[in-house]
């Protein structure tokens, strides 16, 4: 599988604090990478660096073979990098349909608003929100807004999709539904990087896991191996988790 994203010694500093420190990580086309680690480990910062929300302080980011370290976030979006936000970011006064249509229209210059709305209808149907098309985004429940966020990201027809805690705050049934959607998206050929705290989901969905701790990559490999890694248990999973799952 060819590498779609490559981070080379990427660091991001906020004043004296390294949110990311010399991270080198490759992501292959077609995989579902789980990005885990304790709060403040730099997971969201990594997504922000790649999607150009907060550019890297040093290092290099390449997407599909091209250097994107210094592009603007709207340019990254147009190249096929799309993401959902940990705290959902809808256009609150717009209808669900127009929220998704905005993503379809602006990610591809030249798309007419009419065509964008048509595409938006399909994506809303995919996430099961077709009945909510006319509702303003502010009136949707959290679970629906998370799915709306997903529909928006998909309407950009991404090649690489970052999912930043899409399951946080959802109940069991909603998590199952979201997991199903992620599987389907991956099947359609989109490479996925997901930040996730629910280990059950991570193990169920991901083909590989990367672990961040204090801004550094401490493990990277097959899920089964990573959860046995003593550094990962020490930093994130905890002895209890390890014992419960028989690896301690």
């Amino acid at each position: 599988m060819p590498e779609i994203l490559k981070l080379d010694n990427v660091s991001r500093r906020f004043g004296g604090l390294y949110a990311l420190r010399d991270v080198t990580l490759g992501i292959d086309s077609g995989e579902i990478l789980g990005l885990i680690g304790p709060n403040g480990a730099g997971k969201t910062t990594l997504v922000n660096v790649v999607t150009a929300v907060t550019p890297a302080t040093s290092g290099r980011v390449a997407f599909a073979g091209e250097d994107i370290t210094r592009v603007k976030s709207y340019q990254a979006a147009r190249r096929g990098l799309s993401r959902t936000f940990q705290v959902v970011q809808p256009f609150p006064e717009m209808s669900a349909l127009d929220n998704v249509a905005a993503a379809a229209a602006f990610s591809r210059p030249g798309t007419s608003l009419h065509a964008a709305r048509d595409a938006a209808r399909e994506h809303l149907a995919f996430v099961g929100l077709e009945g909510m098309a006319g509702q303003s985004a502010a009136t949707l429940t959290l679970a629906m807004r998370k799915r709306l966020e997903l529909a928006k990201a998909l309407a950009m027809r991404p090649r690489l999709l970052f999912l930043d805690e899409v399951n946080a705050g959802l109940n069991t049934a909603e998590v199952e539904r979201a997991t199903g959607l992620i599987h389907q998206i991956a099947k359609s050929g989109v490479t996925i990087v997901m930040i996730e705290h629910l280990m059950k989901v991570v193990l169920n969905v991901c083909t590989r896991i990367a672990v961040l701790h204090n801004g550094a990559l401490i493990a990277n490999g097959a899920p089964r191996d990573v959860i046995k890694d003593s550094a990962v248990i020490e930093a994130y999973l905890g002895q209890q988790y390890a014992r419960r799952h028989g690896h301690g």
């Binding site: 970011q89 602006f106 990610s107 210059p109």
Partner: peptide, 11 residues
Amino acid sequence: QNEAASQMVGL
């Protein structure tokens, strides 16, 4: 309504 989100969708 949301400038950050606008940039993220390619605007």
